[in-house]
Design a protein around this nucleic acid. Structure first.
Length: 417
RNA sequence: GCGGCCAUAGCUCAGUUGGCAGAGCGUCGGCUUGUGGUGCCGAAUGUCACGGGUUCGAGCCCCGUUGGUCGCCCCA
């Protein structure tokens, strides 16, 4: 790289060639499957009033203090590049007056997100997510369908064998409060055995001890109480119903009582599709129920559930199973001489009108244009010069077999349908 | 924000105790003025990431910066 050459900003990357093909295939597939489940696509702004995020995150977490792209615009308003998709969808749901009637509202989205973090594989400062939300549904069937849709997308992409679905329940508010107290009691009794970091967590966010990576913590966590003893009857039945629906829908899962969420508006279902293949950033798709979020955004109580998936991480799994389907191979139209070049335009338009991918090299003699045809992976070459022109015919060359035949120009498009 | 490792041609990489900057692939040209993909011949391409230091001499040793990578923190 030349000394003064501009580099992309840290933690950003260009999507070109195969990278873009995989990225787009993930979005296309997710969009298609989400539609099967009745989701409609929304596009919301990639920056929002900072309060859209700070209001829902609290103000003590690292999330707010150091990981958001927040700045003042020229009018002095504090705006933030969206770090995730759910908050913006909920804001739009409220802003557009959709909170009453016609519920649930089922939303799909895809687009860039921004988090100011130290980059590592599968974790960039600008990254991309797909996600779905069901807004205004309190029933466990919604949770099960949301999960099933995510699993269906992975299956359609062919990556489902690389991931495992883990589900848990965070219970309702009384369950959660009782569990938090039980956890604090348990870990406080073993305080000296905890890692230094987990001793801090014990004060700030005790549930996070459950997914600590420290070996000394994991031993304690293995024997820690799970939430199941603290669940209210209602919360337990809710979770059992979600699981029963998943089984009926044919979605394989395992219960992992150590899945947690940090914020209070989460309740009941929490789930993650995880993989061993991406190192420390192994969560491919994560979601859950957030009955309190729309309310925090200024709307009415709106029980909701959804998930988001990192497109880059999904694309890495996709690469491991062969990548995106190949693009259709074009037909290369190759004129010889000026008169033929003009006539080639008619051939091109006829082919494209028939839905055939067709290209013409902009310069070069026959040899050069044949070489070019090869570089663009053309399947056929259509060659026309003065001799062909005079007869209203073209040479159709199969570039894989090398065989060539004379074809009536008018009959050409029909050869490719 | 913290720590380990890394940075040489478009790509993948080699480069000996510090002594002339290399290979393969790709690219371009020719063998072939109406026929590509395979073959043969030839060519171009580098502030060795950036800045400083040590040395007669630095791709190589030292310091800093930038970027990548792996882990930690965090994970909405």
């Amino acid at each position: 790289m030349a000394p003064n050459q501009l580099q992309p900003p840290r933690g950003t990357h260009d999507l070109i060639g195969e990278d873009f093909a995989r990225h787009q295939h993930v979005i296309d597939t997710a969009r298609r499957i989400a539609r099967l489940y009745g989701f409609a696509e929304w596009a919301t702004p990639i920056f929002e009033d900072t309060r859209v995020f700070s209001r829902t995150l609290g103000d003590t977490s690292d999330v707010v203090t150091k990981e958001m792209y927040t700045f003042e615009d020229r009018g002095g308003e504090s705006v933030t590049l969206r770090p995730e998709g759910t908050a913006g969808v909920c804001r739009a749901f409220v802003s557009n007056g959709l909170t009453q009637g016609n519920l649930p509202r089922k939303v799909f989205y895809a687009g860039p997100m921004f988090r100011y973090e130290r980059p590592q594989k599968g974790r960039q400062r600008q990254f991309h997510q797909i996600g779905i939300e069901v807004l205004g549904a309190a029933e466990p069937l919604a949770d099960a369908e949301v999960i099933a849709c995510g699993w269906h997308i992975q299956r359609e992409l062919g990556i489902e064998e690389g991931t495992v679905l883990e589900v848990n329940t965070l219970g309702d508010a009384p369950s959660r409060d009782a569990y938090r107290a039980a956890l604090v009691a348990y870990f406080s009794a073993h305080r000296e055995a905890l890692s230094a970091e987990s001793q801090v967590r014990l004060e700030k966010n005790p549930m996070r001890i459950l997914d600590s990576k420290e070996a000394q913590d994991r031993a304690l966590v293995a024997d820690a109480p799970t939430i199941f003893a603290q669940l209210t009857d209602e919360a337990r039945v809710f979770f059992e119903t979600v699981c029963a629906h998943l089984e009926r829908l044919g979605v394989p899962y395992r219960v992992n009582p150590r899945i947690v969420r940090g914020l209070d508006y989460y309740s009941h279902t929490a789930f993650e599709f995880v993989t061993e293949r991406l190192g420390a950033q192994g969560t491919v798709m994560a979601g859950g129920r957030y009955n309190g979020l729309v309310e925090a955004m200024g709307g009415p109580p709106t029980p909701s559930v959804g998930w988001a998936a990192g497109i880059e991480r999904v694309a890495m799994l996709l690469e491991a199973v062969g990548g995106a389907p190949a693009a259709p191979r074009p037909v290369a139209v190759i004129p010889v001489g000026d008169a033929a070049e003009a006539a080639a335009l008619d051939v091109l338009q006829a082919l494209r009108s028939a839905g055939v991918v067709a290209e013409i090299a902009y310069k070069g003699n026959l040899k050069r244009r044949m070489e070019r045809a090869n570089k663009i992976s053309a399947r056929y070459a259509v060659i026309l010069g003065d001799a062909e022109l005079a007869e209203g015919r073209v040479q159709l060359r199969d570039l894989d077999s090398g065989t060539q035949e004379s074809v009536l120009a008018a009959a050409l498009p029909a050869r490719f349908v």
